[in-house]
């Protein structure tokens, strides 16, 4: 709690709190980052579930994974910046905690997916991981949007 209160008093939080311009810009960059993550993750998942068979899987996934990871870093930075303004408020919101929990699960699922791909594993496991990824990331999106409405 002390850390969260200190975060609210940080220079970053104070400048974002009062700014008419920076906050909406950071917010827009967060939306852009989320768009990158969701689009690329869903395309990877659809490819794993049997879509776009004509496109080479390896290079398709390699490209989209770069987009997804770049977007995730962007979302993390911009999200942290917006969180810092009212850190104690957000940290007490169940929907915010649900979003963070889903991100952790999605990250673990990603690690499982990567380890599966590198080994010789059942295609059903890969598909199950892809389906779970879709559900988790859409859940993250939904929880994130609800933060503004609760």
């Amino acid at each position: 709690m002390e850390f969260l209160e200190a975060l609210e008093q940080s220079g970053l939080a104070r400048s974002l709190k009062a700014s008419f311009v920076i906050y909406p810009v950071v917010n827009a960059l967060h939306v852009l980052s989320i768009g990158m993550v969701l689009t690329s993750v869903m395309l990877i998942d659809f490819r794993m579930l049997g879509g776009f068979q004509a496109i080479d899987r390896q290079s398709f996934i390699a490209l989209l994974r770069r987009v997804a990871l770049t977007g995730f870093c962007g979302a993390l930075l911009t999200g942290f910046a917006m969180f810092s303004i009212r850190a104690t408020e957000y940290a007490a919101m169940p929907v915010f905690l649900a979003k963070m929990g889903l991100i952790v699960l999605a990250a673990l699922n990603f690690l499982v997916f990567v380890s599966l791909q590198e080994g010789v594993s059942s295609p059903n496991l890969l598909r199950a991981s892809a389906a779970l990824s879709l559900v988790l990331w859409l859940g993250v999106l939904l929880c994130g949007r609800f933060i503004g409405f609760l």
């Binding site: 579930l49 049997g50 598909r127 389906a131 879709l134 609800f146 409405f149």
Partner: peptide
């Protein structure tokens, strides 16, 4: 199963989450 029930199941779960949260619409 993944193309059919997996995706449909996921969509159903998301629908339920949305429904469950709907009455709580607040400050926007």
């Amino acid at each position: 199963w993944t193309n059919g029930y997996g995706l449909r199941g996921g969509a159903a779960i998301l629908g339920l989450i949305a429904l469950a949260s709907a009455p709580a619409f607040a400050h926007h």
